[in-house]
Design a protein around this nucleic acid. Sequence first.
DNA 1: CGCTAATCGAGACGGTACGTCGGGTCTTAGG
DNA 2: CCTAAGACCCGACGTACCGTCTCGATTAGCG
Lengths: 209, 209, 209, 209
Amino acid sequence: MQSRIPPSARTGGRPRSAAADTAILEATRQALVELGWSKLTLGDVATRAGVAKTTLYRRWAGKSELVVDAVAELFDELELPDRGSLAADIEGVVLQFAALLSRPETKTALMAVVAESTSDAPLRERIRTSIVDRQKRLVLAGRQRAQLRGELPPEPDPDAARQTADLIFDVTAGAVVHRTLVSAEPVDEDWARRFTLLLLGGLAATTQP
Amino acid sequence: MQSRIPPSARTGGRPRSAAADTAILEATRQALVELGWSKLTLGDVATRAGVAKTTLYRRWAGKSELVVDAVAELFDELELPDRGSLAADIEGVVLQFAALLSRPETKTALMAVVAESTSDAPLRERIRTSIVDRQKRLVLAGRQRAQLRGELPPEPDPDAARQTADLIFDVTAGAVVHRTLVSAEPVDEDWARRFTLLLLGGLAATTQP
Amino acid sequence: MQSRIPPSARTGGRPRSAAADTAILEATRQALVELGWSKLTLGDVATRAGVAKTTLYRRWAGKSELVVDAVAELFDELELPDRGSLAADIEGVVLQFAALLSRPETKTALMAVVAESTSDAPLRERIRTSIVDRQKRLVLAGRQRAQLRGELPPEPDPDAARQTADLIFDVTAGAVVHRTLVSAEPVDEDWARRFTLLLLGGLAATTQP
Amino acid sequence: MQSRIPPSARTGGRPRSAAADTAILEATRQALVELGWSKLTLGDVATRAGVAKTTLYRRWAGKSELVVDAVAELFDELELPDRGSLAADIEGVVLQFAALLSRPETKTALMAVVAESTSDAPLRERIRTSIVDRQKRLVLAGRQRAQLRGELPPEPDPDAARQTADLIFDVTAGAVVHRTLVSAEPVDEDWARRFTLLLLGGLAATTQP
DNA sequence: CGCTAATCGAGACGGTACGTCGGGTCTTAGG
DNA sequence: CCTAAGACCCGACGTACCGTCTCGATTAGCG
């Protein structure tokens, strides 16, 4: 799902510049790093991108939509490298996610758009599609891989499977975000190890009553 | 710790109106509910409170500081009722915290000030003192009570104790916030039960290597 | 003299649409009536005329040039009907000119382009050629006819003749314009009669010292 | 009559700066000279005056209103010096008015606001009060003085008196404006003499049937 | 009881950014 | 070469808030 305003359906006319899109999103990230969310202005982004303000407004409805797109591109990089065991995979994901969150552009932007989204349902949906689901995908892939390895039993009930995945996701993402942004302390290998221990222990308790 | 600017040290002169403080904080919460963080303006708050803008700026440095104070008052209500067992206590805290987070004024304000705080260290400190520590206190009190009950073993190493408490806190608060604000799904009794199961299971695994 | 930009000298290629010209000028007048000078936009004119903005800019340099042409067409209608006497002829011209000036499209456009022309010499020249000279012609024709009738003596000195004609022209056109646009009162038959009396009386005094 | 937006009726609050008014009007005239009407922008005027744009908009509704006030001050200078005879007085007024009209700030502004006023009745009224009536006053004063001198007979019928004064005014002001702005030729002593001759001759013809 | 001094309301002030609009240019595809 | 369509850059618009300032009018406590 895209936040961009689609071009006029009518054929004919000068097409939108693809280079402008790239320049704008890059300029947005750069401005986020230098100024932070609250001091970022669309006029400044336009100037940095070498683009007219109108061009920007023609494609995005506002600051939130633009920033979501700009940050979302960074989340595309997330992958699930095979580290050999479920525990190692989880630690890898946690560290990868933490690394992303500690970049200044994501740090300042993510909470801000989430805050904005509390009173803006379409924006919330866009965040979910562009950002959140990209992380959730990793949880599902990780479980699948662990089941192939025999580390986790197959889950016959699809409802329970989904519920558990959601819980793991909220716990993992929430913990990393909270540690990084609220507690403002680093997510290092040690923390990742201890968190993984907690998660896997809890998971065992959950599935083996 | 207070965000308020202290009154002039010099004695004599008209004292600050105490009623104004109450009115301003109440007006702030009301405006947060109606407008959300980004559309809340200090001029509007002043009008609602029946107070001049000057009065407001004489006491708070800006929007963030004011909102932190306004929301912090709500976190004073958090308590740790004795529900008889560690699991029940945790479920209680989770539900209580979730209830607070689902109020519109906290929902919209909390993430916003956290976002603001990523580039404002004093603000981050104020948030920690006024809001976060109030929750953390519950974690510590819960553990102490559980140890008194014999549900948890005493932790001889104070460093490890702090580290574990921090982890539990980040996991719990993070999970509830993420579920509520990002996943935008309710934290009901069922979820609280499943989360507690996960947490306690993980905790057992962590402390019994 | 035309304000239009001439078509490319190079032969070959698609010729300009003559229908477009008509449509554009008509649309301009219509827009002048509805919106007045300052709110008239070339984009709107293009839309009304069912024409692309490009087409419009290929033919006229700007708003002033377009409006001069659009209004000038109306001045083509001015004639000098033979009413039998100099006085009657003058009254006729005055009323005819006043009628033209009271049309909303001329009323709003004429002063505006004159204002523009104070800092735009080519525009001033175009106004003179397209609009002013068309009125001045009537003064000259009126005098010639009166001389044929014997109502006015021949003027042997061509310099003095030109000077007098200029004076009469400025007085007549100026008075009608001022009455219509500044004083905002109607130029009716009574006013025309009184003005003619004044003018002819003054003329007699001027030529018979 | 003033074009200024009156300050809030409520007492209390910081009073409006009188210096700002002076600076704004002076800056407006300066900008008119340098840029002309159509390129004058309120933002630029504000900058020149060392004033915020909002201050400007707090006091005037728009460009036209501001310019009327700025130019009107110049018309305050108009007087009727006693030159000894009616003819000499008229010539004096004509030359004085022409001198005012040939200043670049009035030249570019006057026609423009008149053009605007064709579709803006309140503006037309403001022009009349602030500018036109100041000139008309001279006509009336001139007649009164001429009657005291015995150069003109007393006019018993007040209606006819007013009608004649209006006619003289439209003719005089119109002729000077037209000569200056449309014909774009100078109003020098020679022209003033010839115009006065015409006017007085016509006047005699009008009043002595 | 009258001083003194900080507070209060009100609202104007210099700024900065907003989101929109119009001007005039350009780049398409099509005639 | 012209045309319709529409995106492009640019600059100005008028508005909204910001945080500061200047007023006159209140309030206290201290002398």
